[in-house]
Design a protein around this nucleic acid. Structure first.
Lengths: 161, 161
DNA sequence: GGATGTAGTACGTAGTACGAACTATCTGGA
DNA sequence: TCCAGATAGTTCGTACTACGTACTACATCC
């Protein structure tokens, strides 16, 4: 794994702060995760619980769909939903069309909490790019979007999934 | 937290795949973490264990320095190093200059493993950008580096720490 | 009606993180 | 030289997370 900065490859001038694409993405990812961790901890939640709430803001997935969206094993998803249900922001209800299946939804408290969390995450993550010009921020946004789209294709998941 | 794509702000054309800077960074971060998770799982390690080995490739920090580098509580660092020591790639030795302090280093096995892991992470993370042109890949690298540098300054950590 | 497949859970195991409380060692000032 | 205060690190309790295996309940299809 790469955690320490290394020299740029030969043949290209290396401006200050260019860690290379690999180190750059790994450290950027760690920074974003740290922001998510701090914001969710402020609401006494874990990062995964925050991801769960975020997914539930605009859909009511089954456990199986949730597992796919979160890229988790079914048993891990059961545990995550169990703990979130115990804490209150989430609940299950039986799928009227399939006796085996449950749907997972936000409670009223959960919806309010998710709104507050979403706003705070948006603020803190956006603040990471305060040092960039608007043009550069937009470029970063576009480039990130392309990497995300390619990764989704590679995983066989359309963006509308 | 933001997990689902949303519409672009008004006033700017929205190219395909632009999720906005916040969603873009959050989802990009999750994708990179997923790559790290798969690569380290292949070596029967966790992501945090991989980060630990990576840090130890070019330094011999104390527990306190490690905790700061990993952004963890001292007790969490103790646990992480305990488990890594039990598995073999890492060991502690007493600091000759401070009787309270330990240094954490890679064992020979750990050094070999870290080399293999580092190469594989580099390959898989770089592959995330296969869909970008060289120019765009370099731009992403530069932008990531700037965000990282700003975040380091904000945390009071020089890049040479 | 029964074999097969699917949805989800229970269990065991290992890893992770933090806060409080503790012990051992170091430092600086009286 | 000694001691109070600070530092380094660990232990403990608690909660969260993840996976693989095995299981039960329900759905589907022949």
């Amino acid at each position: 794994m790469v955690e320490t900065p290394r020299a740029a490859p030969p043949g290209r001038a290396c401006p200050a702060h260019d860690l290379g694409i690999v180190d750059g993405l790994v450290q950027l990812s760690a920074i974003v995760q740290a922001v998510l961790s701090r914001v969710t901890a402020g609401a006494d939640l874990s990062v995964q619980q925050g991801r769960l709430l975020s997914i539930l803001r605009d859909r009511e997935p089954s456990m199986a769909q949730l597992a796919r969206l979160l890229d988790l094993d079914k048993s891990s998803t059961t545990g995550l939903v169990d703990r979130a249900t115990q804490r209150g922001p989430v609940r299950r209800f039986a799928d009227p069309e399939d006796g085996r299946s449950f749907r997972v939804v936000l409670t009223d408290d959960g919806r309010r909490l998710t709104e507050v969390l979403g706003n705070e995450v948006a603020r803190e993550v956006a603040a990471l790019t305060d040092g960039l010009s608007d043009t550069n921020r937009h470029r970063l946004s576009l480039l990130a979007g392309r990497v995300i789209a390619d990764a989704a294709v590679a995983r066989g998941i359309g963006l509308s999934a």
